[in-house]
């Protein structure tokens, strides 16, 4: 995935079954963000792989004051990249079993 300066990782082990999963997001390189970032640490949240949209979570982070509106796309993309990777891994496991 592209280095967006925003790191998103699994906050729990992926059992490959449940749709809602805990993720942890933090800013690794604030120079890649357009707005001034208030260093508040790592943000942990749950994300539903089947029903949720990464950009919506990014917008909620903006509304909660973690990021500025100008960076909502980069945050959304960072989450989307990680979510895609999780889904891709799950697909591989499923097709490996079949």
């Amino acid at each position: 995935a592209e280095d967006t300066g925003v790191r998103v990782e699994l906050a729990e082990e992926d059992d490959g079954k449940k749709s809602s999963i805990a993720l942890r997001l933090w800013v690794e390189d604030q120079k890649k963000l357009k707005g001034k970032y208030k260093d508040s640490g790592a943000i942990e949240f749950t994300f539903d792989l089947e029903t949720e949209v990464p950009e919506t979570v990014a917008q909620e982070m903006v509304e909660s004051g973690f990021f500025l509106e100008i960076d909502v796309k980069i945050v959304g993309k960072s989450i989307r990249d990680r979510v895609s990777l999780i889904k891709w891994r799950r697909q591989r496991i499923v097709s490996g079993h079949n």
Binding site: R7, W26, D29, A42, I43, E44
Partner: peptide, 27 residues
């Protein structure tokens, strides 16, 4: 303080905790 902070937004819960220094880049 290293205690986690909880922020609610539109029904979602964000838990904020310090990032381990080993995970930070360029700092």
């Amino acid at each position: 303080s290293s205690a986690a902070q909880v922020v609610h937004s539109a029904g979602r819960r964000f838990i904020v905790s310090p990032v381990p220094e080993s995970r930070l880049k360029d700092q």
